[in-house]
C-alpha cells in the first residue's frame, strides 16, 4: 500500500513545519509575529492529529482537532483585541 509509505513522509513534513513555527514563536521579534506563530502552531497540531487519526485508523482524535481549531481561533482573536485596545472585555 502506498499509504503506508506516504504517512511517515507526511509526519516528517508536518513536524518540520511545527519546528519552524516554534522557532518563529521563540524569535519574534514583535508580538504579532508570536501570535501568528502560535496560530500556525494550532493549525499544525490539527494536521498532526488528523495524520495520527488516519495512521491509527481511529476517529477519536477528531474531537480534539475540532476543539483545538475553535480554541485556537478564539485565543488569536482575544490576543489581537488585546493588542488593538489594551483590553479584552469592554
Amino acid at each position: 500500500m502506498m499509504l503506508n509509505l506516504v504517512i511517515p513522509v507526511a509526519y516528517v513534513l508536518v513536524s518540520l513545519a511545527f519546528l519552524m513555527s516554534f522557532w518563529r514563536l521563540l524569535k519574534g521579534p514583535d508580538a504579532p509575529d508570536r501570535i501568528l506563530a502560535l496560530d500556525t502552531l494550532y493549525v499544525n497540531t490539527i494536521a498532526l492529529l488528523v495524520l495520527l487519526g488516519i495512521d491509527l485508523g481511529s476517529a477519536i482524535y477528531f474531537e480534539a482537532a475540532l476543539l483545538i481549531a475553535m480554541m485556537g481561533f478564539v485565543g488569536t482573536v482575544a490576543l489581537c483585541k488585546y493588542l488593538l485596545r489594551g483590553d479584552i472585555i469592554e
Binding site: 499509504l3 507526511a10 511545527f18 518563529r24 495524520l51
Partner: peptide
C-alpha cells in the same frame, strides 16, 4: 482510493510545510 489518499496527504503535508517555511 489508495493513490487518491496518498496524493491528498502528500499535498496537504507539503503545503503545511511550505506555509511554516514562509513563516520562518
Amino acid at each position: 482510493i489508495d493513490i487518491l489518499l496518498s496524493l491528498l496527504i502528500l499535498t496537504g503535508a507539503t503545503f503545511t510545510f511550505i506555509g511554516s517555511l514562509g513563516l520562518a
